[in-house]
Simulated assay, not measured.
Amino acid sequence: MTARFEMRDARQDDGAALARIYNHYIRETVITFEVEELGDAEMSARVTKIQAAGLPWLVAERDGAVRGFAYAGPFRERAAYAHTLETSVYLDLAARGSGLGTALFAELFARLADLDQGHSPHAPVHALMGVIALPNDASVALHERFGMKHVGTFPEVGRKFDRWIDVGYWQATLD
Results as ranks from 00 to 15, higher is better:
residue 3 A to P: 13
residue 5 F to C: 09
residue 8 R to V: 07
residue 10 A to W: 08
residue 15 G to H: 04
residue 21 I to N: 10
residue 24 H to E: 08
residue 24 H to F: 08
residue 25 Y to H: 07
residue 26 I to E: 12
residue 27 R to I: 05
residue 27 R to D: 10
residue 28 E to M: 14
residue 31 I to R: 08
residue 33 F to H: 12
residue 35 V to F: 13
residue 38 L to H: 15
residue 49 K to H: 11
residue 52 A to W: 00
residue 53 A to P: 06
residue 53 A to I: 09
residue 55 L to S: 03
residue 57 W to C: 07
residue 57 W to F: 13
residue 59 V to R: 01
residue 59 V to L: 03
residue 63 D to H: 04
residue 65 A to V: 10
residue 65 A to H: 05
residue 65 A to P: 00
residue 66 V to I: 11
residue 68 G to N: 05
residue 75 F to S: 06
residue 76 R to F: 12
residue 77 E to N: 10
residue 79 A to D: 10
residue 80 A to R: 10
residue 80 A to I: 08
residue 81 Y to I: 01
residue 82 A to Q: 07
residue 84 T to N: 06
residue 86 E to G: 02
residue 88 S to F: 03
residue 91 L to D: 03
residue 93 L to F: 06
residue 95 A to S: 13
residue 97 G to D: 01
residue 101 G to P: 03
residue 106 A to E: 06
residue 110 A to V: 03
residue 115 L to A: 05
residue 117 Q to Y: 15
residue 120 S to K: 08
residue 120 S to T: 09
residue 124 P to G: 03
residue 125 V to E: 00
residue 127 A to T: 10
residue 137 D to R: 11
residue 138 A to Y: 13
residue 139 S to D: 05
residue 144 E to G: 00
residue 145 R to Q: 12
residue 145 R to M: 09
residue 146 F to R: 02
residue 147 G to E: 01
residue 147 G to N: 00
residue 149 K to R: 13
residue 151 V to R: 04
residue 159 R to C: 08
residue 160 K to S: 01
residue 163 R to A: 03
residue 164 W to Y: 01
residue 167 V to W: 01
residue 170 W to L: 07
